[in-house]
Design a protein around this nucleic acid. Structure first.
Length: 271
DNA sequence: TACAATGTTTTAAG
DNA sequence: CCTTAAAACATTGT
C-alpha cells in the first residue's frame, strides 16, 4: 500500500528504537526482498550497533546506524514496518527483525515486491545518492516539473505521475487524486496541456502531497499503530470499489487500465 | 476459481 | 542511445 505519506508513517514507527542498541538480527536470508544484499555483513555489523537516525525520500527509507551501517528499505506493494514486543516470534513474512531491549523492529512484506539493502562504510551507499527533488521541497519548482513532463510528453499523464524520477512518492491512489483535483483526464498527454492546466497540475501535486502527509502520515509510532484517512471529500474514499461516485458532481466513476495500473476518474469533470 | 491488489525491474521491441 | 509495452516477481483476499 505505501505511497509518500504511508512510507513516512512507517518510518516513524521505528523511531521508538532510536539511540538503542540492536541486540540480535533475525532475517530470512533467502527471501526475495534481500536479493543482492550481503546478509552476513548486515547481521555482523548491525548486531551490537545503535540506531542513530532515519529519513524518508519518496517511497524509500534510510536508516543510519553506528558502526557505519546504512539500511535502505522499500515497502513495495505490501510492505510495512512494525514494532513488536521484544520476545515475540518473527512471523512468516517478517523478513528482517532487529531485536532491541525494549522492542523488536520488524520489516514485513508478504508479497515481497519491497527491498532491503545494506551498506557499510564511510561513504553513503550508491543507492542513497542522486535522488530526485522531493515534491514538498523548494527544489521541486513548477519549471522543473514542466521540464520533466515535456521529456515524457507522449505518455499519458497518469503514467508520468507514477515515474519516481520526477514525482518521488506518488503512487496509484495519489496520482488519481491529483488528476481528479486538477480536472485532467488521465489519458491526456503532457505535451498538449496549456499554461493554466500546467499550473493547476503543479498546484494539485503539491496539495495532495501536503494533505496526505498531514492526515495519513500523522501520528507517531505506538505499538502497532494505523495511519489516518485522507480528508473525507477526497476521491480516495470512493475509488476502491466499483460503483463509487464523484465527490464533486456525483457521476459514476470510471475505471480502466492506464499506464499499466487500474485508474479511476470522473468522466464528466476530468477532460 | 480466477482475478486483482497503494510497485518496481527486467526483457523485448520499435 | 531512447522510449514504450509487456511480463515477471509472490502472496492474499474477494
Amino acid at each position: 500500500m505505501p505511497e509518500l505519506a504511508e512510507v513516512e508513517f512507517y518510518r516513524k514507527q521505528w523511531l521508538c528504537g532510536l539511540q538503542q542498541r540492536i541486540l540480535a538480527v533475525e532475517l530470512h536470508s533467502q527471501a526475495r526482498v534481500l536479493r543482492g544484499t550481503d546478509t552476513e555483513a548486515l547481521r555482523a555489523i548491525l548486531t551490537g550497533a545503535v540506531l542513530l537516525g532515519s529519513e524518508a525520500h519518496g517511497k524509500q527509507m534510510f536508516f543510519r546506524f553506528s558502526r557505519k551501517g546504512f539500511l535502505g528499505l522499500h515497502l513495495g506493494m505490501t510492505g510495512s514496518l512494525r514494532v513488536q514486543p521484544p520476545g515475540s516470534p518473527a512471523g512468516r513474512h517478517d523478513h528482517l527483525v532487529l531485536r532491541q531491549l525494549k522492542q523488536s523492529l520488524a520489516f514485513t512484506d508478504p508479497r515481497q515486491f519491497g527491498r532491503v539493502r545494506f551498506h557499510a562504510g564511510d561513504t553513503p551507499p550508491p543507492w542513497r545518492a542522486n535522488l530526485p527533488a522531493p515534491i514538498l521541497s523548494s527544489q521541486f519548482t513548477r519549471g522543473a516539473m514542466e521540464q520533466f513532463l515535456r521529456r515524457h510528453g507522449g505518455q499519458p499523464l497518469k503514467a508520468v505521475l507514477l515515474m519516481q524520477d520526477g514525482f518521488p512518492g506518488i503512487g496509484n491512489w495519489m496520482a488519481d487524486e491529483i488528476l481528479w483535483r486538477a480536472a485532467l483526464h488521465p489519458e491526456r498527454r503532457p505535451g498538449q496541456l496549456n499554461g493554466g492546466e500546467m499550473k493547476q497540475l503543479y498546484r494539485q501535486v503539491r496539495f495532495v502531497c501536503r494533505g496526505a502527509m498531514r492526515t495519513v502520515g500523522a501520528g507517531v509510532g505506538s505499538l502497532d499503530g494505523e495511519f489516518g484517512d485522507p480528508p473525507a471529500a477526497w476521491l480516495f474514499h470512493r475509488r476502491w470499489s466499483k460503483g463509487g461516485n464523484c465527490p464533486r458532481d456525483g457521476s459514476v466513476l470510471l475505471r480502466a487500465e492506464i499506464g499499466g495500473r487500474t485508474t479511476c476518474w470522473c468522466g464528466s469533470c476530468q477532460v
